[in-house]
Lab assay of single mutants.
Amino acid sequence: SIVTKIISIVQERQNMDDGAPVKTRDIADAAGLSIYQVRLYLEQLHDVGVLEKVNAGKGVPGLWRLL
């Protein structure tokens, strides 16, 4: 499923980069989806406690990390 793919992308990127959070844009590119589509999935995963959003604010790139 797309959700499983997104989780594995975040996991893979974090492992490659010493646990650093992953940008929404990088996840979207790797999943082959638009940034808006991916954001909806990321928000859902956040709501159920799978991911945390590391930063927030208007015009700030979203950074995500697995919990």
Results as ranks from 00 to 15, higher is better:
residue 32 G to R: 06
residue 25 R to G: 10
residue 6 I to F: 02
residue 54 V to R: 01
residue 17 D to R: 13
residue 39 R to N: 13
residue 32 G to F: 03
residue 67 L to P: 14
residue 4 T to G: 11
residue 8 S to N: 12
residue 46 H to E: 10
residue 58 K to L: 11
residue 36 Y to A: 14
residue 52 E to A: 06
residue 12 E to G: 06
residue 60 V to L: 12
residue 18 D to V: 06
residue 4 T to A: 14
residue 17 D to L: 15
residue 21 P to Q: 03
residue 40 L to C: 10
residue 25 R to L: 08
residue 2 I to P: 03
residue 31 A to D: 01
residue 36 Y to T: 14
residue 46 H to Q: 12
residue 44 Q to Y: 15
residue 57 G to S: 06
residue 3 V to Q: 09
residue 22 V to P: 02
residue 4 T to M: 13
residue 41 Y to I: 14
residue 51 L to H: 00
residue 67 L to A: 15
residue 35 I to F: 09
residue 28 A to C: 03
residue 42 L to H: 00
residue 20 A to V: 07
residue 7 I to T: 03
residue 33 L to M: 13
residue 47 D to L: 14
residue 12 E to N: 09
residue 51 L to K: 03
residue 33 L to S: 02
residue 50 V to L: 11
residue 26 D to H: 06
residue 50 V to S: 03
residue 42 L to S: 00
residue 64 W to E: 00
residue 32 G to A: 08
residue 17 D to F: 15
residue 33 L to E: 03
residue 25 R to I: 10
residue 52 E to T: 06
residue 62 G to L: 15
residue 53 K to I: 05
residue 1 S to R: 11
residue 31 A to C: 12
residue 60 V to H: 14
residue 19 G to C: 08
residue 49 G to I: 04
residue 45 L to M: 06
residue 44 Q to T: 09
residue 51 L to F: 04
residue 1 S to T: 10
residue 35 I to N: 15
residue 16 M to K: 13
residue 49 G to Q: 04
residue 47 D to P: 01
residue 24 T to W: 02
residue 53 K to V: 04
residue 15 N to A: 14
residue 5 K to A: 08
residue 57 G to T: 07
residue 42 L to A: 01
residue 21 P to Y: 10
residue 20 A to M: 09
residue 60 V to D: 14
residue 39 R to L: 15
residue 64 W to R: 01
residue 35 I to Y: 09
residue 12 E to L: 09
residue 43 E to V: 05
residue 5 K to H: 09
residue 47 D to I: 13
residue 38 V to S: 03
residue 38 V to M: 06
residue 21 P to T: 05
residue 50 V to N: 01
residue 41 Y to K: 02
residue 8 S to A: 13
residue 33 L to R: 02
residue 35 I to W: 08
residue 41 Y to S: 02
residue 10 V to N: 00
residue 19 G to L: 05
residue 49 G to R: 04
residue 53 K to C: 06
residue 33 L to W: 03
residue 40 L to F: 13
residue 44 Q to G: 07
residue 17 D to P: 06
residue 50 V to M: 07
residue 54 V to F: 04
residue 3 V to D: 02
residue 35 I to R: 04
residue 1 S to A: 12
residue 23 K to S: 15
residue 8 S to W: 12
residue 63 L to V: 05
residue 29 D to W: 07
residue 24 T to N: 02
residue 27 I to D: 02
residue 10 V to S: 00
residue 59 G to M: 05
residue 11 Q to M: 11
residue 27 I to V: 08
residue 57 G to I: 06
residue 6 I to T: 00
residue 19 G to W: 05
residue 5 K to G: 04
residue 41 Y to D: 00
residue 9 I to A: 06
residue 47 D to Q: 15
residue 67 L to K: 14
residue 43 E to Y: 08
residue 42 L to Y: 00
residue 27 I to S: 02
residue 35 I to H: 06
residue 45 L to K: 02
residue 36 Y to Q: 13
residue 15 N to W: 10
residue 8 S to E: 10
residue 9 I to P: 00
residue 43 E to D: 09
residue 17 D to A: 15
residue 61 P to R: 11
residue 54 V to C: 06
residue 56 A to Q: 12
residue 2 I to C: 08
residue 52 E to D: 04
